[in-house]
Amino acid sequence: MNLALRMLDRTGLLAVIVVFWAIFVVFADGFLNRVTIFGLSRTVAVTAVIGLSQMVVLGIGQMNLAVGAIGGMIGVFTGWLMQSVGLPVWAAVIVALLFAAFVGWVNGIIITKTGINSFIVTLGMASVITGLVFILTKAEAFRDLPDAYTSFGKVPWVELGWLELSPLIFIAVAIAIVMALVYKRTTFGRWMLATGANPRAAELSGVPVNFVVQATHALSGLLAGAAGIMIVSRLGSALPSIGENWLLPSFAAPIVGGTLLSGGAVAVFGTLLGALLIESVSVGLTLMNVPSFWIQLFIGLVLLLAVLIDRARTVAVARGQRGVRQTPAGATSG
């Protein structure tokens, strides 16, 4: 019963994606060609990781407005490590990821120590981080990056006839699989969902709620940083403006995917599908020569619609007295 509903969730979203793809294949010239699909695989990968970074904090019933700021900072930081410090790619990536997790952890520390809501703390932190990045870089980008790194984001990995996929999408899927396992199979995953659904009950049941909040924000920072590193390898240069417009997709991907805003239930693969839907729509509409601002309006409407459908479904499910979506016991990731 529960499983069937979850399948419905995911197949519903899949059906919407299929409908859009059908429309674009017919009306948008060149949607199904190798360049478009390759490009799509790169953007979907980054958006999905951005979405996962927001999803983990939504799962504990909080939010992270600093996802974009952290992503931008880590992109620039990675560029600096490679270009100015001269670290090898692997070392730069590890150092940058650790730093990203640290910044996220600082968010978590401020939230748990002061008890201030996550919205305000991460809003303030985002502003502080972005301000610092621009002050320190004087708004200059790092463009002289190692080939090994930039080619990773530019050269396809899989080539099956017309189908070419970026390695970035494999990274995104790998991250999603790990996340799904964390939620399904680990104590920490259960802790996150219990904290999100009812922090008080979780605390009284021996869940170390403050630790969970801090660690989840660290994880969110880590994922935001990963998205930053991925996008720099795609762009080939570390621009300080990276992350400026991540706010909307960071919420849209997980919510369209079926993550509950109120916390306690997440949809890992749903977030991937959400990212696929959003990016397909923007690429498709662009190919149809729709001006970019109408695409923004459209994505706003898609988010609104997703939220409304989610609400209607939750209410319907509650009336039918059945389980909603995935909870820790009912297997993971709708």
């Binding site: 969902l193 009812n198 306690g264 389980g323 909603v324 909870t327 820790p328 016991a329």
Partner: peptide, 10 residues
């Protein structure tokens, strides 16, 4: 005491 939106098992 409880997490109403989660399963009996959880």
């Amino acid at each position: 005491g409880l997490i109403l939106s989660h399963s009996v098992l959880a």
